[in-house]
Design a protein around this nucleic acid. Structure first.
Lengths: 141, 141
DNA sequence: CTATTGCTTACCATTATAGTAAACAATATC
DNA sequence: GATATTGTTTACTATAATGGTAAGCAATAG
């Protein structure tokens, strides 16, 4: 039914929790999972993936925690998405057109290619700070 | 991994096969499934769904077949999509915000809401005749 | 040394997806 | 009206993706 991956949703939540605190501040994963309602075992893996993708820095040990690697203005939802799921590819047809049994003039490639493009554009346009602002706006109206 | 539903893909193929013939012409499902490479049993159900959604007219019996209900200019990919999958909903959060455990200022609703909007806009903008033209362009260049 | 924190691996249950098969219903034609 | 041809419907299966859990490992501040 073409749903957002829950792990990606959680990943954005985690990044947003960090973005809502001053840049450079560490938050423990416990705090984040409690405010953002992310299951523990799930969050652990997601944090590791965000760390591998260099979107966050992690600090084990007492008074450890995680923090953003860059400022929220420079982090896009697309980066978070790709850290979790890899590049968006809504149809195999778009990656390997030469393998398409309908060949050169496959009508689907145009159709899904356009759809994927607007999705990527939107994901690239949304930064963490944009989202963070949206949240605050709603909070104070 | 957020893939296009294969059934929706097949549905667009079927509609496109019809759109590439003069409006009003009937095609047998056999012809369509051979040119568009749609598995028989799959196609049967999809045709029935397209018929229920009043996107095609069907004629059983010898010399039967299917044809478009409207001209290709007036049929959007969104209509086809919704005939097969129902309305696009990439996150439950967007349908029932009141049930969201993160309440009013859920940061995800803004994020996924924007993404869903550009997707819907694009699906609505793409008509069958647009796609049909694209195919022909590629064929003759 | 130890408590606290993040990291890794393996696993499970449920659902969605892709596809198949077979019997059924309508109808043009002879 | 018999029959072949077409679309309709239902039930089923196998595989993969998703969402989630659990337990042990590794780093480190105090």
């Amino acid at each position: 039914m073409m749903r957002i991956n829950r792990r990606t949703d959680y990943a954005v939540r985690i990044m947003l929790a960090l973005a809502e605190h001053p840049y450079g501040e560490r938050l423990s994963t416990k705090t984040i999972r409690e405010t953002m309602l992310v299951p523990k075992a799930f969050l652990e893996r997601i944090v590791a993936e965000l760390s591998k993708a260099s979107l966050i820095k992690t600090y084990p040990g007492p008074n450890g925690g995680i923090m953003l690697f860059q400022t929220p203005e420079t982090i896009t939802v697309r980066q978070i998405w790709e850290a979790i799921e890899g590049p968006l590819l809504i149809s195999d047809c778009l990656q390997t057109p030469e393998e398409c049994p309908l060949h050169e003039n496959c009508p689907m490639r145009s159709c899904w290619g356009k759809l994927q493009k607007v999705m990527l554009d939107e994901l690239t346009a949304m930064t963490l700070s944009d989202l963070s602002l949206e949240v605050r706006k709603k909070q104070f109206i």
